[in-house]
Amino acid sequence: MFEAKLQQGGLLKKILESVKDLVVDGLWDCDGAAITLQGMDSSHVALVEMLLRAEAFEHYRCDRNVTLGMNHNHLSKILKCANNDDIVILKAADQNPDSCSLILESKNGEKTSDFVVSLVRIDTDQLGIPETEYSAHVKMSSGEFQRICRDLSQFGDAVQITCSKQDVKFSSSGETGKANITLTHSATVDKEEESVTVDLKEPVDLTFALRFLNLFTKATPISDTVTLSLSQEAPLVVEYKIGDSGHIRYFLAPKIQE
């Protein structure tokens, strides 16, 4: 038996909004400690990994490990019926379930809706993501990162991210010309969520497709801050913490010269 009760259904709505445009069908692996989701976009350029630990739930029970193949468009239809402060309960049998039940309860307990979502068969296993030493970590406001990605999309399809000393520069160019946005490591920190931290071991200079970064920023409502981890030989990691009980990490392969 798998059963998980989330007090604030809004969190599940936000998580789904942040993955559904990137990954159509995702593997939701449930064990005694957490729910993890992993999936790739159809072109295999980006990968998303979500972790939500048991402590995020008011009630969590998972007698045997179970994998739920979720079609995110179907799940999204159900969660559109939920208010942010509705309680959401997920239920599934623990041996090869072909469906998952979702129960929505209003805060005042006066309305209950229940749904059954058919599960889909996904023939891939979750990948082991290699441990990587990154050359640069940039922590910044998630809203600012969203703004930069959106603004630069007006100028080109790709963004060049350059980290050197205490700066991170985002550049894009196209027919209209060139745009550069530079953020400097904050000298003083009044509000952590508004400050910029650049932790650099080696300079990096990488180019990424803005289309994917704009999809990643759908996770902005989940956290006030975002961390970018960069290394010349590895995919970019864009991480949003889910409070103290999990994260959404997006991995994006850099572009290379044709």
Partner: peptide
């Protein structure tokens, strides 16, 4: 510029 396959980068980095 072209996008790379993320799996090939992960496997190359192991």
């Amino acid at each position: 510029d072209v996008n790379q396959n993320i799996l090939s980068i992960f496997y190359n980095s192991i």
